Computed example of a mutant assay.
Amino acid sequence: MKRVKQIQICTVNMAPALSCLGSRHKHSLPDLPYDYGALEPHISAEIMQLHHSKHHATYVNNLNIAEEKYLEVLTKGDVTAQVSLQPALRFNGGGHINHTIFWTNLSPSGGGEPQGELNEAIKRDFGSFEKMKEKLTSISVGVQGSGWGWLGFNKENGRLQLASCPNQDPLQGTTGLIPLLGIDVWEHAYYLQYKNVRPDYLKAIWNVINWENVAERYRAAKK
């Protein structure tokens, strides 16, 4: 898998800066670290292909378009146009951020339970891994409409927390939590395989969670 340069999306916090956009690079769709069919039978190849190459690609394309327009109106000092572009920047920027995390949170060799310090932190903050799993599943099932369930890290108190975000709102921009594990509960993430039974999808996805990636994010978040 080729490495994709990490580009700061300075627009999703609703306060874009000229210094950031003035030197922007075009965002690109990251390669998956596995084949589309690698997560079967838990997530079908058809879902993965459409989810990655169509849905995520659309967020990337629309984010590039919105940032180009924003830079244009920013240089003109058109405040009204700047404000009108904020929803597109937030939605598509959040979609790009969330999915980039989501792909790495999954693995064909995933599942089971986390190990080491992440496991200890989960036990400390939720009582047990099973209790955390049950709570995050419940939060994700309960998202009204489209959105995400998250396991995040609170930098201020050093604790793990669970949260949900509507639509494509980015966790850190919405709650301040550093994202560790995201579960996509937009219908495009599961409908072709699980129809309208979101709980079945959420039961299955735990079999492909990449706990090594989540643990790596946890170690980085603590620094």
Rank of each mutant, 00 (worst) to 15 (best):
I101L: 15
N98E: 04
E46M: 02
L106A: 05
Q115S: 15
L50Y: 12
H55G: 00
V143F: 05
V79H: 14
D125Q: 13
M14F: 04
T75H: 08
S128C: 08
A57L: 03
K54M: 03
A88Q: 08
M14N: 05
Y70H: 09
G77H: 02
Q49G: 00
Q115G: 12
V73N: 01
M14P: 01
I43C: 01
L85W: 09
I101R: 10
P41F: 05
K69C: 02
P30G: 11
G110H: 14
V83E: 03
I139R: 14
G111I: 07
G127N: 11
A57S: 11
V143G: 08
S44P: 08
G95F: 10
G95E: 10
G145A: 09
V79C: 06
P30K: 14
T137G: 07
K135Y: 03
G142F: 04
N61A: 12
F91L: 08
G112A: 08
Y36F: 13
T75K: 10
H99L: 15
P87I: 06
H25W: 05
D125M: 07
E46W: 04
V73K: 02
K69T: 01
N62V: 01
N64E: 01
L18A: 15
W103L: 13
L74S: 14
T104M: 15
A121K: 13
V143T: 11
K76A: 01
P30T: 15
E113C: 06
K26T: 02
I97M: 13
A17L: 06
I65P: 00
N61I: 03
L89G: 02
R90P: 01
P114Y: 13
A38S: 11
D35L: 10
Q49V: 05
Y59M: 05
L71P: 00
K133Y: 02
G37W: 11
P33C: 09
K131E: 15
T137A: 11
G95Q: 12
E130Q: 12
Q144W: 04
S44I: 03
H99W: 12
L29G: 08
P30V: 14
E113R: 14
L50A: 12
L63M: 02
M14G: 03
H55V: 15
T104G: 06
Q144H: 05
P16L: 03
G112W: 04
S28I: 07
M132G: 05
A66H: 00
Q86D: 03
L29D: 04
E113F: 09
I97L: 14
L39E: 05
G145F: 09
H99N: 14
S53G: 03
